[in-house]
Design a protein around this nucleic acid. Structure first.
Lengths: 217, 217
DNA sequence: GTCTATAGGTTGATAGAC
DNA sequence: GTCTATCAACCTATAGAC
């Protein structure tokens, strides 16, 4: 009893520090965030952080780990909710929905992670890249299945396609607040563009034929 | 004569410092890049930087200004090369081509700018946001014309669409080196997805466009 | 214009009281 | 577990020699 209560208390403090760090790192990046500021947000003194974390680096890495893990979990949960019979494009769309709702609503962790990438010591960056790849493979398998089953045209380079789309997601926290859209509306736009393109078919086909002819003449 | 030679020498040194700063900021971000390191790359002593720049902030802002300006110029140049008769989707594709070729090949400035955004003092960030908006309006006008003329379906929120696509561009330096693609191949994938989507049924429409685009390069 | 030397301030981290 | 006090290292920026 005593032990579990003690652990629970310690864990809650640790969590409070992690949230404070994520918030601060998100706002100012890694190097510009001092332990004094993080401690201030967590309502403690800077020296006290060291009871829970060995160094600033360890704290940063813990935030980054949580950032990838949580983003991955939300994307996977989106797919899982669809059930087994879903078609591959719906799976990708659902992963984006889970991922983006998390990225835009809940998460200082994931956004802090994206913004800290090129500031942390190299050892951290290397380890983080490996963890990130596991997340990448999850998405890669969704795209591979979709292409294999004929839902994505064979000429697409799946790796490039995946990274372009993840880039669109990852960049969205930079501007989303000014857009006036809801996360779900934004995902709808992305999925529409991804699956059907932006042109009205017949009009585009017609105009394009036109402009092609004009240019070839 | 003397004056112009002096100015030329001074300008060349200034440029050397700017390039060193861009390279260093790109690699480590704003706060983690010390003036000593920048000076080292520029092959001078840290104190000497102050003859050319008043502060680290001014140096950072100069790099960021160059980053937006150059990216904007390359996007505009891509469109300008098309001539007046080009259709709106070709204009967007050409802007992406110019923009992305710059972002992936030439530029420490633009990438450093993207990575410094949330680390600089707020005054810099605010001024930079204003300059960035001018670039945004350039793209916005391309998309508005395309939608007005029927090349983009009316249900698309143009602002969201634009920012999603620019996010895909802005994120590409993070992974491009591992992709094995050329910048032009990457732009082709992006433009294909944007215009026709990734599913098989619209392939024919794009192939029509393809011959037109390739003549323009 | 560039150098060296250094002031003045902040940072990550440690030690010891409670 | 948290606090206060403090150290050593590093940073930006300045001053003055050349």
């Amino acid at each position: 009893m005593n032990i579990s209560q003690t652990e629970s208390k310690s864990n809650r403090t640790r969590s409070r520090i992690l949230h404070a760090a994520a918030k601060t790192f998100r706002q100012h990046g890694y190097a510009s965030s001092s332990l004094r500021e993080i401690a201030d947000v967590a309502e403690m003194q800077a020296g006290s952080l060291y009871y829970h974390f060995e160094s600033k680096d360890e704290l940063a890495e813990a935030v980054m780990d949580a950032g990838v893990t949580q983003a991955c979990q939300h994307a996977e949960a989106g797919v899982a909710a669809l059930g087994d019979a879903a078609n591959p494009l719906d799976c990708i769309a659902a992963a984006f929905r889970g991922h983006l709702n998390y990225l835009l609503q809940e998460s200082d962790f994931a956004v802090a992670t994206l913004r800290m990438l090129h500031q942390t010591p190299e050892a951290i960056r290397i380890r983080h890249t490996h963890k990130q790849r596991a997340f990448g493979r999850f998405y890669a398998s969704l795209f591979e299945r979709a292409q294999r089953e004929g839902f994505i045209r064979p000429e697409f380079n799946l790796s490039a396609l995946r990274m372009l789309l993840l880039g669109a997601l990852n960049w969205s926290p930079e501007w989303f607040d000014d857009s006036g859209l809801s996360p779900d509306e934004l995902v709808d736009q992305l999925n529409q563009m991804m699956q059907c393109g932006i042109t009205p078919d017949k009009l585009a086909a017609f105009k394009n034929r036109d402009s092609a002819r004009r240019r070839v003449q």
